[in-house]
Amino acid sequence: MKKMPLLKEHILLVGILTFCINIDDARSLDGHYTPPNVARLTDLFHHQPLNQAFLTFFGGSNIHFVNNGSYVQLNLNKTSGSGLISLNKYNYGFFSAAIKLPQGYSSGVVVAFYMSNADLFPHNHDEIDFELLGHENGKEWLLQTNIYGNGKTNIGREEKFRFWFDPTKEFHQYSIIWNSHHTVFLVDNIPVREVENNEVMSTIYPSKPMSVYATIWDGSEWATNGGKNPVNYKYEPFVASFGEMEMEGCVWVSARSVPSCSKGGQEGPSAVDPVEGENFIKLSQQQKMGMDWARNRFMIYSYCKDPGRFPVLPPECKTK
């Protein structure tokens, strides 16, 4: 009979601990983070075969399609890196890839999933970047995001994050929402950064049609510890795997002077356009909470918090 209160106290204590863990989203008992639940936008679109939706950008001998072209292995070795460029260019849309990063020593290696139009507009191009930065032994891969428009590269708008998982063990999804309202970077459907197209950002916001790129390359000059740790080719080849590619939006037709998109027989962005609905023009409350979770726990650098680099902060930083 005397053991009953102890049992009740034990149950109560377990309940309190479970409640606290759920509220705080802290590390679980095995040392991993439990991310918040958010809408799975990647479930809305079909996967495109990479061997049909992309062309070789560079390093053709280091590109190996697998599983009937639904996945690709991009290699970096002493000879070359490698990369793909999308067959189509887009005026806006939702773009996503599942990526598994190279294991082991990877200092100086850069794996990138990004959008750019430097081929069409070499002097005033736009770009939206996921850059995954390699590491030296005992260190973690880092995630860097960047965005600029109209060739305004004099101010790098980088933000860096740690991961809440090991990006070398399994595939994880890296997604971009890009439209006239905002640009959002998402990891496993959790927003990690939102850039709104407001009055302050209007002249530097990406606005011209862009291609989608998947690459791996040597970033020895800057990628790891500011270039202090270059690529060591003793560990080659460095292999990045891409799959579950999704590219849904307004395909650019060069012969037309204005963007024209059709779906279901209708021209232009409309109610049936899959990337112009409420899910894509603004973040839900759930997504905002997820973004706060990611930024508060895992962001390790923002250009808006770097007065040493910018004694006068860029104007958009003052609105954050």
Rank of each mutant, 00 (worst) to 15 (best):
S82G: 02
P230H: 07
L44I: 00
P206C: 04
E278M: 11
G227P: 00
N179I: 10
N91A: 02
Y301P: 12
N51T: 02
N37S: 15
Y174K: 06
G277W: 09
T224M: 13
Q286M: 09
W222N: 09
N154F: 05
P35G: 01
E194Y: 01
S86E: 00
S175E: 11
L41A: 00
L50F: 00
E159V: 02
Q52G: 03
A271P: 00
P274Q: 10
F95K: 03
G31Y: 11
L142F: 08
N137Y: 13
I99C: 08
T215E: 11
K208S: 13
D273P: 00
V110G: 14
R40C: 03
Q73G: 01
Y205M: 14
P259M: 05
A255V: 14
A98T: 05
Q52R: 12
Y71E: 04
V272G: 02
D129S: 12
H182N: 14
T56R: 06
K305P: 02
K288F: 01
V72G: 01
M245C: 05
G108W: 07
E276A: 11
V38L: 08
S260E: 09
A98W: 02
F280E: 09
T224Y: 05
K318T: 11
H64S: 06
L87M: 05
G151S: 13
E131D: 15
N225W: 06
V38C: 10
N37K: 13
N22G: 09
C304D: 08
E158C: 03
V200H: 05
L313K: 11
H10G: 02
I300Y: 04
Y90F: 14
Q144D: 00
G156V: 09
A223P: 07
D218T: 08
G277M: 10
G93A: 01
F130P: 06
Y301S: 14
D166R: 11
H182E: 05
G290V: 09
G290Y: 09
